[in-house]
Amino acid sequence: MTIKKPTAESAPPAAPHQPRPAESRAQRRFHAGDYGSWWWALPALAMVFCIHYLATAFGGYYSFTDWNGLGPATWVGIDNFVAIFNDPQMAGAVRNTLVIAIVFVVVANVIGLLFALALNRTLKSRYLLRVLLFAPVVLSSLAVSYVFRFIFAQEGALNALLEAVGLESWQRTWLADPTWAIVAIMTVLIWQNVGLTMVIYLAGLATVPQEQEEAAAVDGASMWQRFRHVVMPGIQPAVAIATTLTLVNGLRVFDQVMAMTGGGPFGATDTLATVVYRETFAFGRFGYGAALSLTLTFFVVVAAGFQLYITRRKH
């Protein structure tokens, strides 16, 4: 159905000015929509302030203390942050976090975009395939990770499959291998989130006019040229959303690591989030953990801001 926008010519003539019927003071106050609109939101705003911002501010305060989760906290200045940057294990955690985030952003978005392009229009079974590809997104990441933990185990399905096809030499303890453990984690992360990026790109592709693609094809543009010069500019907003979401999720990855490796072997898959958990809840170093959390937040904000800046500039 097409809705015709009214033009100056087609618009009905404006009615001559007529005096408004008399209203009581209370009615006038009620009609003044700009009056009630903000304070009605006050309870929600107060709760958001208390739950999100005030709690975060308290966390920020504790990052400058040596609080152990019990009793009073002692102010220690920037000692926690100095300790973070002097801890050799933190370098590994930061490196792992960045590697996971970057690989996750690139691979999840490329595969998601390819699926979106493949399932956008022509394929008859596209609706069923979209559902199947999106299904992992709605599963619990912890449950998925535990399933994959069994798959990657020494006596798990992957090694059994390799043995069945005569590739015994490829068998290994995947989650305890310093090289392959992080690959296994990234595989699970990507497998579970490709459906999400696919849906975002499908939404973006729906905004690209089919006529433009057809016109470009008639003009002799190749498939790559049509994608590069017609489709990509049209889905730039989707690219910005998908890459930012995956970047943030990649930087704060926790469930998959804790469920599959616990950060091991020997810290080979430790991330900032897992170190925050261990220092805070396993060792009771709440002040240090709060400082780590603040550092992780800083990472995420800077990376997400940079990501948005890049995508906006392209747009």
Binding site: A176, D177, P178, G264, P265, F266, G267, A268, A282, F283
Partner: peptide, 14 residues
């Protein structure tokens, strides 16, 4: 924790 993690690191050669 350093001991326990370290032993795993010894097993993996890390």
């Amino acid at each position: 924790n350093a001991l326990g993690m370290g032993v795993q690191g010894l097993f993996t050669g890390q």
